[in-house]
Amino acid sequence: MDTLRKYLPILGLAAFYVLVMALRKAGVLTSYYVQILMFAMINCMVTLGLNLINGFTGQFSIGQAGFVAVGGYTSAAVTTLLLPSSVLVPALRPLVFLVSVFIGGIVAGIFGYLIGKPSLRLKGDYLAIVTLAFGEIIRSLIRLIPQVGGPRGFSGIPRYSNLLWIVLFFGGTIWVLRNYIYSSFGRACIACREDELAAGTMGVDTTKYKVMAFTIGSAIAGVAGGLLAHLLGYLHPDQFNYLKSIDFLVYLYAGGAGSMTGSIMGATLLTILPEMLRFLSGWRLVIYGIALVFLMLFRPQGIYGGKELPFLIPKIRRPEGYEGGQ
């Protein structure tokens, strides 16, 4: 029973993949729908990373698109400039892709560390402003690098991403984040959110954990960027402007900050919804704006704020006599 419970999420994810593939083969889902699903999962990853920073650690980053850009451009540079598919035997291509995505994540993480370290010592909204500025500076810098296309955009990126890869990374992100949040590290992050000063007097090195959360969140955005680059086959600096960052912020708070379930719901719903409203043309953004205001007025904590689906909470067996009313 316990083993079944343990592997249920993995089975669920596998079933989801098989179902989507079957529907695709049967012609129920067009490649356009599958593409939207993939975008939704990539957006979920970025939002989950942002949730670790804003929702669980109580910081306020608003420049997540900058890290997606760093990850995307870095991994695309690896697969397009460093080891283009033309010089690789086909069997090696997935390996190079995998490595490039991780490199994108690591580089984004390094950027996150370098930005977080000086700005997280300070309280208040400084991180917000510094991350916003960072996103815009990165965009300006990318424009100055002709090797990655500069202001014309980076084209010719091999389209290595597919549903399988994205499902794997999506599932992996959820699993790793869940483990982190329900570990001693995650509790330290949550303590920073709840009361930074009290956290310090409980022996938590608050700066360290804020920087750690920020670095991990940025790295996840970078990984998502790598997947995105190889899904689109093309990147442009303007894809990552601060309005894109605002999108992630909206996914996070509409879903419910501090809940992984909320991030997944928010990002999925708000990626798919505007696509479904396409027949309304320009009016859909008008409706989107109003809907956002109403959602927050009637559910300020977000769709799933403060709650979590049970499989996202690791179970700990309590000793006899202490079971209590969990």
């Binding site: 001693s184 509790r187 409980m202 022996g203």
Partner: peptide
């Protein structure tokens, strides 16, 4: 549990 943090 948070107070046990440094001992973990």
């Amino acid at each position: 549990k948070i107070a046990r943090h440094p001992r973990i």
